[in-house]
Design a protein around this nucleic acid. Sequence first.
DNA 1: AAACCGATAGACAACGTTGTCGTCGCATGA
DNA 2: TCATGCGACGACAACGTTGTCTATCGGTTT
Lengths: 356, 356
Amino acid sequence: MQRRGSKGEGAAGVTIVDIARQAGVSIKTVSRVINREEGVGAEARARIEDLIARLGYRPNVAARLLSSRRSYLIGVIFLRMGAYHYIGEIQAGAMRACRRAGYQLVVEQVGEGAAGPRETLIETLRAGRFDGLVLTPPVCDDPELLDIVESHGLAYVRIAPGGDFGRSPYVFMDDASAAREITDRLLDLGHRRIAFIDGPREHTAATRRRQGYLAALGARGVTPCADLIQSGDFESLSGFEVTERLLDLSHPPTAIFAANDGMAVGVLAAAAKRGLSVPGSLSVVGFDDSPVAASAWPRLTTVHQPVAEMAEAAADMLIDGFGDKRFRGRTLVRQLDFRVVDRASIAPPRKSASGL
Amino acid sequence: MQRRGSKGEGAAGVTIVDIARQAGVSIKTVSRVINREEGVGAEARARIEDLIARLGYRPNVAARLLSSRRSYLIGVIFLRMGAYHYIGEIQAGAMRACRRAGYQLVVEQVGEGAAGPRETLIETLRAGRFDGLVLTPPVCDDPELLDIVESHGLAYVRIAPGGDFGRSPYVFMDDASAAREITDRLLDLGHRRIAFIDGPREHTAATRRRQGYLAALGARGVTPCADLIQSGDFESLSGFEVTERLLDLSHPPTAIFAANDGMAVGVLAAAAKRGLSVPGSLSVVGFDDSPVAASAWPRLTTVHQPVAEMAEAAADMLIDGFGDKRFRGRTLVRQLDFRVVDRASIAPPRKSASGL
DNA sequence: AAACCGATAGACAACGTTGTCGTCGCATGA
DNA sequence: TCATGCGACGACAACGTTGTCTATCGGTTT
């Protein structure tokens, strides 16, 4: 039928048949070696492994899929990919895990264009054959989408889900502790009037960050002042506007903690507009360690989320799970550590304000 | 052999055989319809198409690949994915094209970890079966990597390559014209002492931007002053430092054009530090329309690169090319339009300076 | 009327692997 | 001595599609 593709490469096109013939065994035996199955003698195994290495043999993914229904494909699902800064890191992390285990990573985006997330997800799942899925926020917080995935009988791991924790394996970071720790930084410097800019309600991580903030204040006996807790929508403009209100207060804050970096940049902008130096006259911290945090001015003190590591762990859990009868009933959870990134946007409060 | 997977879904698992049986034709005829081949009567075709739609049949990717060597997989190759802000847009764009044509997008990263880009690329190409590749900078500017791709006989399209233009199809944006146009904005406002902050030498786009800047000055008869052309490294800190030097000049610039947004933010910071209002006392423009540009203060006037569109066009070219005997000898090029994003960081120069 | 044609369609093998089942040789225990 | 069991391995079908080759049919040309 088809001619053997005449690649410019020597090694390409080696099949299991070639190995079998040269090793003087059946293809089934070679298959057993590849898949680490029992029932192959030590010397035959050694001979075959040596040949595989020498000829640079790689199993044909398609044939494998066709025969065994395992695709060695893991999908990462995003909602509107352009919008999030962390997608590169997620992919990089997931890819590390995939490559280690001989898997490939397929990226999919749902909810772009005319069709809604539901439709595109169904379409995606039908078209591609995935062994498992890594679900990112906010996809992983939509019960309806989870239903769809489950109805396809697909294994999946969520990254930083907002709730419904019993439902599937997931990886997460302790937002509350991180928020508490970065608030402590401010407290340690002597700040007492610390404002908090919340995120949108549906973003449950923002809520956990607020709780951490409150816990830190509580632990030092600082009573949180309602005026100082304002809500934003994670966009920098909201950070800007809220800050204007905050600075107009009769007794303005000496430090502002924004629940994400985007809003923190807005805080910086509002301060710049008023000629208020940061961190001299106002300290600012963000959350996420997004790229803007590093290029903002001054460089933003923030919390680094181990995004790549979370994705790597998620993919690892998925791959390990495949051996395990597809997660049957087990619920796995992995927590990863955050890190406070000390940069240049915080300093002790000016005397006048700190005195009190 | 294997039992038919008992999916929770009705439609999954429909094969070409089911369609053929219900339509009362052979599987080959169905195959012809799917692949838009000739030789099927109108009514048979209609009947089959109807069945395909009703049963929600999707060709099995693996079987197709195995049989025809077309994988319907397009790879996008990045170098260190975490590092660039535009990767989400690139993927989103490429995915649009893929989805339209029934392809899937596989993301790959080279040069991460111990192994160099060379090794990981070879490994990647050997493991995955791609129909074609979209190469992003700086991968697409490494002749050695291009050699590897070519030696595998793979079709590829480059996005914004820096040189070696005859070598393959590519898509690009006219950096020079864009730089010229944004410089004209400044000139139109009356600025004559316009500084330019260059990028790192290996970044060929920076060079083209500088040429555009020079061309704009030349067209108005403004002689560029060597003092006003300084080099940076695309990081915001370098923008800050260069600006300090610039502002210390006996005859400082009234406007600064930074070759990317990151450095432009640094310019803004340096101005803020000196209490120089932007755009009142100093106009600033950047390039790229990266996320920081929109959230900086004041919001940065910059050039929007059609990143998503370029990726979409690249994937389209690839897919179209497959029909065409794999690009045999043809060199295709597509140019996409930039757009100057007018925001709040430029204004006419103060009288004292503009007079001259 | 014979020969030929193009349009339409089907039979069958092939792609490269894994799953199932069977066989062989040899050691073990009764 | 003979069944019994076990470890090592092979034969063969199956996965779902496409490529190649061949057959049928109605109409046109000679």
